[in-house]
Design a protein around this nucleic acid. Structure first.
Lengths: 267, 267
DNA sequence: GGCGGCTCTTGATACATATCAAGCCCCCGC
DNA sequence: GCGGGGGCTTGATATGTATCAAGAGCCGCC
């Protein structure tokens, strides 16, 4: 079993029968960065075997979370970055008036916690949308290792920069686009992110409730629901609860107003 | 004359009579990071005199831009970061369908170009809103210097992280808030950023046209105009063209739904 | 000094999406 | 198997903001 043993699992599943058998268990053998299947997406990108080895010494720890548990909260001291190995998370921020806003959905192979460096304190919340597993990466150690290993340094900059780019795309999406476009773009985005990971680009399970999707897109849950129904009527997708199958990838991407996804149109 | 000689100047000014006298000229004496008035906001934060000296060797170059000129365009190879010394910029991204979205307004002391690291290519446009001056910082050199100077490294991470935090706040703003709230939040934000720089928090000139504000906030120019008029009727602000005076900072910040600004509620 | 072109303002109307309100479905626990 | 509750869907209505349209102010140019 590699770094990426458990497949995403819904906590409220329709496909998957139940979640109660032997959950949250994980073999610890052969769990390392070198053979991690999300490797390409995590930090190690261009490191040599020896460098990966050193990285592993500081990223050995795993943390398992149940659906609904929070990985960190705004105000928590910043100590670690987290690489998602399986499962998914939502990031939220809270306004002064208590209003919350979902800012991201994080899927396997993606990082959480980058916004916490400045101020040494998390400024957002990360909550597991389903049972999930993360690599814990103590940033202080990562930082000093990076000081010695330029390739790691580059990779960290890369990730920060990538993250900024993604946010720009999100802004673009939320800026002035119709509810329909936003919904289509989100579906395309999730599709491409799963596909990049080796999962199906056309059939997946949304791990988040409609309310979270709505909040993220700046819409209401009712509107999200209506749009999904509409897409289904138009034969663009098939929805059943949180299961989604994209029937017409091209039409959907045209609706989204972008060729592939608003994240990274390549891949 | 220090690092921050020229004050922001409108290119379409109401206060300032004209822009044609001796523009875009700048003494080169004593232009260095150590005595730069935006120092606290640029990279040098915690560096020793000796380290600042080394930094200066690679950041000596200046670039002057006329209102409307672009600092970089999406697709340009990434070579430099830019620290704004005077003037202001808008960052935009362009959707596949050609639609553009303003993602930021950048004021003096702030950095541009961070999103370009990954892919070694700019993914957005930066256009001067008024005649402006920037410090050119070749990133490759910055990077290798950072490899030797941990304090610089920290500062770079800091800036990246700060940037991500800011974007989260912007998402919060755009997510589900009324036009009124967005407009108030933008005014408060600009106010706090100017104030942080030592300028008046209550009287400033918006360097961008209404259309850019509207685009940034996900509204139309008409709505922006109406809102400003409304704020004025309600004695919250006084507007005359692009000049704004905030009359009731407290009421405005309450409207914005945050205590001070959506950027960094402190300061 | 007067003309022409922007940017900005203001008004009337249209429309997209929110809001309010049931009812349904599915999953879970008893 | 039955009852309960949360998430989801669907409908009717309300409303905020866009859209369309006209006019005003300002600036630069001729």
């Amino acid at each position: 079993m590699g770094c990426d043993s458990s497949a995403p699992r819904r906590y409220n599943g329709a496909f998957t029968p139940s979640v109660d058998g032997p959950p949250m268990k994980e073999s610890l053998s052969a769990v390392n960065c070198g053979n991690c299947s999300v490797r390409r997406l995590c930090l190690p990108a261009d490191l040599s075997a020896e460098e990966i080895d050193r990285l592993e010494n500081i990223t050995g720890k795993r943390r398992l979370l149940r659906a609904g548990e929070t990985l960190y909260r705004a105000g928590d001291p910043f100590a670690n970055l987290y690489a998602i190995r399986s499962g998914s998370f939502k990031s939220t921020v809270i306004a002064a008036d208590g209003d919350t806003q979902v800012t991201h959905f994080a899927l396997p192979g993606e990082l959480l916690g980058l916004d916490a460096y400045s101020g040494r304190m998390h400024s957002s919340f990360a909550e597991a949308l389903e049972d999930s597993s993360v690599c814990v990466m103590p940033f202080a150690q990562l930082e000093s290792l990076a000081q010695e290993v330029p390739a790691l340094q580059h990779q960290i900059y890369n990730i920060f920069s990538e993250e900024l780019k993604k946010e720009n795309e999100t802004l673009l999406l939320l800026g002035k686009r119709s509810a329909e476009t936003r919904m289509a773009a989100l579906l395309m985005n999730i599709s491409s992110r799963y596909s990049r990971r080796g999962y199906s680009a056309t059939a997946f399970v949304l791990s988040m409730p409609r309310t979270d999707i709505a909040n993220y897109l700046g819409l209401t849950a009712e509107t999200v629901s209506r749009l999904l129904s509409k897409f289904q009527r138009e034969q663009l997708i098939a929805v059943r609860g949180r299961e989604v199958e994209i029937l017409d990838l091209i039409a959907l991407s045209e609706l989204a107003g972008t060729h592939c996804s608003y994240e990274d149109a390549g891949a």
